[in-house]
Amino acid sequence: MSIDEAMPESALQQVEDTGQDTSPEGLPPDVMEITSIEGLAKQLAETSLKAQDNWDKWVRSQAEFENFKRRTEKDLQNAHKYALEKFARELLMVMDSLELGIKASTPGLSEVEKLREGMELTLKQLEAVFEKFGILAIDPLGEKFNPDQHQAMAAQPVENAEPNTVVKVFQKGYSLNDRLLRPAMVVIAQQVGESTYIDQKA
């Protein structure tokens, strides 16, 4: 390699020397020119070979990258399509139970007690599915209002309630693996004089 690198420099030197017309080695300028052109030609051939090599490598890696991108996109699409698969399979049982329940509730023949029992069992099934997949219910009655999980529908002055606590839950919230699916819809107790509160620093 060191010989290859030394080559161009000496060739360049020779070209410069011929430019001065007087050669230090005393060789006629013609001979100098020939050797320098040969050197340059060799250098050019080597460099073009190297360039071609690098070009090939680049084209190959570019193609590889394109393939990788396409494969990743396909994987992602499949993940989107089939991510629900396990969850859906668990839900089928709940669906079956509900259908059986409807079938059993023939008008005039069914007992409310038994229907209720069936519904409770179905609910338990669904709860088990939710639990299995990390879906947690948020029922914040009496807790301190937390805007990360609760949506305030209204603020009411309520006696015997700490200000800024939840006094009524319209609709439970749900979270999935620590990410909020739906906030709980709540009414919170109003702070006395809160309506006049203005943060002067804000």
Binding site: F145, P147, D148, H150, A152, I188, Q190, I198
Partner: peptide, 12 residues
């Protein structure tokens, strides 16, 4: 979360 508490804290 700022949006969710807007009703309770409209002035701020």
């Amino acid at each position: 979360s700022a949006k969710r508490q807007a009703v309770t804290n409209p002035k701020n």
